[in-house]
Simulated scan of single mutants.
Amino acid sequence: MNKRVLARAGALLGAAVLSAGLLVVVGAPAQAASLGEVTLSQTSGSVTTTPIFTSATSPKCPTGFGENANLRIGRPGGPYSNLAVALGGGGFDEAPVTISPNRSFSTAIGGAPAAGEWWVVMECYSLTEGRNVDEFRTSIQVTGSTWRVPVAENTTTSLVVNPASPVSQGTEVALTATVAPATATGTVEFRRGSSVLGTAPVSGGSATFATTALPVGTFALSAAFTPADATAYKPSTSTATSFQITAAQGAITAPVEIVTDIAPGAFSLAVASPTTSLTGGTVGGTATGALPAATVTDLRGTNVGWTLTGQLEDFTLAANTIANSKLSWTPSAAKTSGSGAVTAGAGADLGDTRTLCTAASGSSAGVFTCGADLKLSIPDDVPPGEYSATLTLTLA
């Protein structure tokens, strides 16, 4: 479905502003979304161990859905099988919920689980409305007869350069990177300052690159490891090694100073689409969707930091309204390019100005993408129909 909305972009006192329309049609039920993570007492184990783990804990259930809670396991999106006896007695929307399984992974699903991704989910129930359409969930990976939560392991990278500095220009210089743990696989990028000299695969915990093309001068050599499996290992970079190349014997050198004037680049905000739709909405239920991707470009050269915020109006349909606080978002953020870093804002309702993403002073340069999952809680006393609201994004 399409809905006409207005989008505007510009600069206001150093702030870039974009408005995006949000549309929800109150109708069919919503699909399950994640309410957050389930924290497991162990991060790995055997699929045949009873119980699969000692306990699982989730945040408190949504208000009104605290009558019962159940811990289950299955392929992403279901169907799910019970890992424990369901909890009863109510009060599970007042405090975090902990359930202790009483069976193994294999027993729960009636056989050996296939390799790949599975979900451990915590479900919440209302006495009158049944199971909440959304759930708490944590992803686990099955390999052979074991399962594990895909938590990346730290790595370290060190660099040795042979022969020792200084050497004359044209001498072959070998750079050897050692990556620990030795089980980590991937590639190493060898650098001279910020320039890339070359790359080499990691084999048996090491990677080597040799060159005769280092120029005359003193500079920093380093090695940066990129894992082949980012869910298993984290990247790491070696400490920089100072290295000097001298002019070849008998060579005559003459210095030439090179000067360039660098102008500041863009500081801008762009949104992939001026409108988005929330789907699955029913009176008294929820509607879900996603914010169109917002791209922040900071090439000013100042590295002073920035923050992208959102302010939402109330949803309206003629004289009917749904308060802006009924819409909540779960922001996400990623770096597209550059030297900076971006942090997603906290999940929150949009009853006030909220942060979508931010980059701190000293690490804000580059191009970044920010987005959010959206969830609208629809009151049980609003007439059905097509409601719309405008979300204004402000970059400053």
Rank of each mutant, 00 (worst) to 15 (best):
A228F: 05
D229G: 00
A272Y: 06
A247R: 14
A266G: 06
P215L: 13
Q244S: 14
I262H: 02
T208W: 07
S236F: 07
F267C: 14
V283M: 08
V271A: 10
A266Y: 08
L221Q: 00
A293C: 01
T282R: 09
I258W: 14
F225L: 09
A266K: 15
S277I: 14
P264Q: 15
I252E: 11
T246V: 13
I245M: 04
P292S: 05
A263G: 02
S273A: 14
K234Y: 12
I252N: 14
A210F: 03
A251S: 14
T295W: 08
A230I: 15
A247L: 15
G280D: 01
A251W: 12
F267H: 11
T260L: 11
F267V: 15
V271F: 07
P227K: 13
D261P: 01
S242P: 03
P215N: 12
L291A: 01
T275E: 14
T218A: 03
T253W: 05
A266R: 14
T279K: 12
V256K: 14
A290K: 03
V256T: 15
G250M: 13
D298A: 04
T218S: 02
S222K: 04
L221Y: 00
T279M: 10
A213D: 06
D261F: 11
A224K: 13
T241Y: 04
G284V: 08
L278C: 05
G265L: 02
Q244N: 11
T239Q: 08
A287E: 04
G285R: 04
S277V: 15
T297D: 01
F243A: 00
A213L: 06
T275W: 13
S236Y: 08
K234E: 12
F225A: 04
G284M: 09
P215C: 12
K234R: 15
A224V: 15
V259H: 08
V271H: 06
A272S: 12
P274R: 10
G284T: 10
A247E: 13
A266W: 11
D298N: 06
G281D: 08
A228V: 09
A266M: 13
F225Y: 11
G285V: 06
A240V: 07
D261H: 10
A230S: 14
S222H: 01
L221D: 01
F225T: 04
L291Y: 02
G265A: 03
A293F: 09
A224Y: 08
D229F: 05
E257G: 15
A210E: 03
A254D: 14
Q249E: 13
T211C: 02
L278W: 08
V296A: 08
T288Y: 04
S206G: 05
V259Q: 13
S236T: 10
G250L: 10
A294D: 00
P235V: 13
